[in-house]
């Protein structure tokens, strides 16, 4: 039932060459899609056990802080993004009490829209990111772990920690082909009220199908150094890092073929 060019699936997870019955999908392809959608829907509702994750972070020899937002359930998280963008009073006080000396980078981890993503890739990515910053001599604060956060929460945390940069590692919305994708957002001079135009984003971190930990951490280190040097982030900070992968996979040869 599939189309003869199905061999091209070796290059992409996209649902290509599915074949057709009339104008429609063959039954198997249709039901595969339904199952994938059901899995993604279930993944969105899954809660994150932040204490277990904190234990793993400690094992890496890193200090972690568990913080909270006013969000009380996954359904509320989905409908009230405003609540995911602020800390509870007690968490606010915890950060206020300890922010004495300035740091370079405030690192935050949240499950966001996919607890699976942060459980599958969060620790390994965090480890790679921390190592990248250590190599460059950048000081990081405690790893702030927050369930049910939105990206902009990093602004408040970064400001309270006197950080020059805020970086949040967050679970991305589950798709049909993958429920385990992480994103990282970087903001220079974080403070409540930062707009999305002031952020740089690295997304689709989910090896092996998506970006690898090393590639993501290298990109983050590059953007962080650029942001600190130039005193800005976001749209004005262009990512001009040479693309290694292109030569690696022989992209130029491909172009000739096409």
């Amino acid at each position: 039932m599939n189309d003869p060019w199905i061999t091209l699936r070796q290059f992409t997870q996209a649902r290509i060459a599915q074949g057709r019955v009339g104008c429609s999908l063959p039954t198997k392809a249709l039901l595969d899609f339904q199952l994938a959608h059901a899995s993604a829907r279930d993944a969105v509702q899954q809660v994150w056990d932040v204490k277990i994750f904190a234990g793993e972070v400690e094992k890496l020899g890193l200090e972690s802080l568990i913080l909270t937002t006013p969000v009380s359930s996954r359904p509320q998280y989905l409908q009230r993004p405003d609540l995911g963008r602020c800390l509870t009073k007690s968490s606010h006080e915890i950060l206020e009490a300890r922010a004495s000396q300035a740091i370079d980078v405030a690192l935050i981890v949240s499950n966001g829209l996919s607890s699976t993503a942060v459980d599958d890739h969060g620790l390994a990515l965090l480890q790679t990111v921390v190592a990248g910053y250590a190599e460059r001599g950048l000081r990081i604060g405690p790893i702030c772990l927050v369930a049910n956060a939105r990206v902009a929460l990093a602004d408040e945390i970064g400001a309270l920690l006197n950080a020059r940069l805020a970086v949040i590692i967050v679970g991305e919305r589950p798709g049909l082909s993958a429920a385990d994708s992480l994103g990282m957002y970087l903001t220079y001079a974080p403070k409540p009220g930062n707009t999305d135009a002031e952020r740089n984003c690295i997304s689709n971190i989910r090896p092996p199908a998506g970006l690898s930990y090393n590639a993501a951490a290298a990109k983050l280190a590059y953007l962080s150094e650029q942001a600190l040097q130039r005193g800005l982030s976001g749209v004005a900070l262009k990512d001009d890092m040479p693309a290694q992968w292109f030569t690696e996979i022989g992209g130029a040869a491909l172009l000739k073929k096409l």
Binding site: W5, L8, F11, T12, A14, A17, W245, G251
Partner: peptide
């Protein structure tokens, strides 16, 4: 819309071909 999670030109070309066909 032939998007690919890492912008791999081969994956993108495969989706373009599928779409054109």
């Amino acid at each position: 819309q032939p998007n690919h999670p890492t912008d791999d030109p081969r994956g993108i070309a495969a989706s373009i071909l599928d779409g054109l066909l």
